[in-house]
């Protein structure tokens, strides 16, 4: 019965114009534009950027899709739907897990479409294992952000959640180097960037492009954020359970 819930939520998410724009169309468009506008000095530079930005924009889109779970939950909470679900056999815990699983599916279009544009439009060539590993690792890497989204959704009102999600997405994307390479940052910003979940999320893909997997540093920073965001989600969920 949780699968029925996931199916319903996937449909509802994909029908959300806002989600399709933020979670699929925008990163795809930005990727194609950023990598094709403004001629670079050398073909090698443009290919480097096409590869770097493919990971960056896929991560940006997946981040947006994962955080979109927040406004969705907040809206359902405000409309009394979460309370209605509480009087069905579905347990509140199954509802939360169902939402997380939904995000596990709805983050995929962003990753897949930007990767496809990389291969088909920008001629990015990778070994088959690299495509698979980059996509797979980045897919798993969305889990902390889904938890952040759930925390926002259960913790705030519908309107506040929208603003908080948008701010987290923009802030984390830019500081994490998903839009522009961290190399271009001033030193102080670059050192902050190393500690963001988004920079490490991007590194899951960039490290595969560099023919080695993500290092211990990336995995431990991500694990730290995973624990923090999980705690935040549990806290928000528990607090809202008293009122939902």
């Amino acid at each position: 019965m949780m699968l029925a819930y996931v199916r319903l939520e996937i449909r509802r998410t994909l029908r959300d114009t806002g989600f399709v724009i933020v979670g699929i169309a925008t990163p795809l468009l930005m990727y194609v534009l950023f990598t094709n506008i403004g001629a670079s000095d050398s073909a090698k530079d443009s290919m480097d950027y096409a590869r770097y930005s493919m990971i960056g924009m896929a991560a940006y889109g997946a981040l947006g899709a994962a955080l979109a779970v927040g406004p969705g939950v907040a809206e359902d909470k405000a409309r009394g739907w979460l309370r209605q679900l509480r009087v069905t056999p579905l347990s509140p815990f199954q509802v939360v897990v169902g939402r997380a699983l939904t995000a596990g599916v709805t983050v995929l279009p962003a990753i897949v479409s930007v990767f496809a544009a990389g291969a088909l439009v920008n001629g990015v060539r990778l070994a088959a294992w690299q495509w698979a590993a980059a996509a797979g690792l980045m897919w798993l890497g969305t889990v902390p952000f889904t938890l952040l989204g759930l925390g926002n959704g259960y913790g705030f009102s519908a309107q506040t959640t929208g603003v908080v999600s948008m701010a987290s997405m923009m802030g984390l994307s830019v500081i994490g180097g998903l839009w522009f390479p961290v190399d271009a940052f001033p030193h102080w910003l670059a050192s902050i960037s190393r500690w963001t979940p988004t920079a490490r999320f991007g590194d899951l893909g960039w490290s595969v492009l560099a023919h080695h997997g993500p290092g211990a540093g990336t995995l431990s920073v991500l694990a730290l954020w995973l624990v923090l965001f999980a705690g935040y989600a549990v806290f928000s969920y528990r607090r809202s359970a008293r009122t939902v």
Binding site: L8, R11, R12, D16, E75, R79, W81, Q84, V87, P89
Partner: peptide
């Protein structure tokens, strides 16, 4: 009883959710 599916309820102030 609720988890066993023996109860159905119409609560106050519920609004239908969008996109379904």
């Amino acid at each position: 009883a609720v988890r066993a599916g023996r109860v159905g309820a119409m609560l106050q102030e519920g609004q239908p959710v969008p996109r379904a």
